[in-house]
Design a protein around this nucleic acid. Structure first.
Lengths: 208, 208
DNA sequence: CTAACATAGATAGTGAAGGTATCCAATGAT
DNA sequence: ATCATTGGATACCTTCACTATCTATGTTAG
């Protein structure tokens, strides 16, 4: 298919597709001549993935590029891909300064007996958030955090279960990305709804 | 204290503080004269909160303004405040178009027997994410989503527990905001670490 | 009292991010 | 042969979150 058809099928303007090509998010089409290139189903699929990561999850173009790079590089090695994908995303900008809470995180990981890479950015994200909360007068200690971590553990089991039994390695890789990254807004939405429900429950019990 | 001292104590540049005042994120100080105003501990506290919401959680200035507005308006009514706070945040931009997955969300909420407002933005966020996943070939049905929702339920219980036993209504309101909003990056970080751990566990079991 | 400096508030400018729009030469369809 | 379409290059635009400058007024040290 031509670029115009790719645009029509995906709903993404031609100018934007060109932009993604320039930025290296979308691989170039098969060159037919100096001014013609052909795109296929893979491109359409990739384009939809890009829109989901940027539009739904709110990732930046550069983060998306890293993620997609990991996807093509580690197709077939889901474990490695997962590591790369998890590492590529930063929820907070990294301040890169040593925050004292890193020790708390280390202690928590040890207590949980988790096998997590020493340099995992998630550690820094967690430490930074804890530091911020402490500054604001809400110090969360390990004791408080532990049950949250146990629930995260069970969430991760559900996540990994979803990846079982997929034979096509490309599909497995893509699904790993989608489930780890794109599911985040959904999980946060579930938590918000659950909070509203729980709040209503307690409010009704206590007062009128 | 003067603005310069507020700046020094918070680490936020004077120009930025003026910007937050203009944008209505920070209440004006007590006017001493035409060109002098005094700020107090409350302002410092508020300023730190603003930086955390914008810097750590990555909220936009306008979302932060809504949130802080809800905070001053509903101090003392934690249940109402929570509703406002949960509603003010949108993880995804709202497409506002009726996506078929809204029915699935409705069914899920019914099955869970949750008391969630019909117009809660979290419903739309969830529906939109599900729609996106379906388009990408990963249709998550209610059956798959249910265990995630159950875990969210238990997370919400932990969240609400944190708010128990705080007597000062302003402090309770602020903490509600912090725990619902600022804890999100921390929970996602925990999930990422748990995934890495779970992936390592299964990888080790299966292969070498 | 006065000179030097600080401050509040208004207005304008900056830089990054994420697109959009315009050109143009080379096709491909009619 | 003609004429709209395409790919590629380049320039432009808009939003966001600040940041800098300017001015009139205050404060303070000598």
């Amino acid at each position: 298919m031509r670029m115009s058809e790719l645009s029509r099928l995906s709903g993404v303007p031609v100018a934007t597709i060109k932009y993604y090509l320039r930025e290296g998010l979308l691989p170039a089409g098969r060159q037919l001549s100096a001014t013609q290139a052909e795109y296929d189903e893979q491109h359409l699929r990739r384009l939809r993935l890009i829109r989901a990561l940027i539009g739904v999850r709110g990732l930046s173009v550069s983060t998306t590029r890293e993620l997609l790079g990991a996807l093509s590089e580690y197709t077939g090695d889901t474990h490695r891909l997962l590591g790369l994908a998890l590492g590529a995303i930063r929820l907070t900008e990294d301040t890169e300064q040593d925050v004292p809470e890193l020790a708390d995180v280390e202690a928590l990981v040890t207590e949980l007996d988790w096998n997590v890479h020493k340099a995992a950015p998630a550690r820094a994200t967690l430490a930074e958030t804890l530091a911020s909360l402490r500054t604001l007068g809400v110090p969360l200690d390990r004791h408080t955090l532990l049950p949250y971590a146990r629930l995260a553990e069970r969430t991760a089991v559900l996540d990994l279960d979803q990846l079982q039994g997929i034979e096509d390695p490309l599909e497995a890789a893509e699904r790993a990305l989608l489930l780890t990254v794109l599911l985040e807004p959904a999980l946060m939405a579930l938590r918000r709804m659950a909070q509203e429900n729980e709040s209503a429950r307690r409010h009704a019990e206590a007062g009128d």
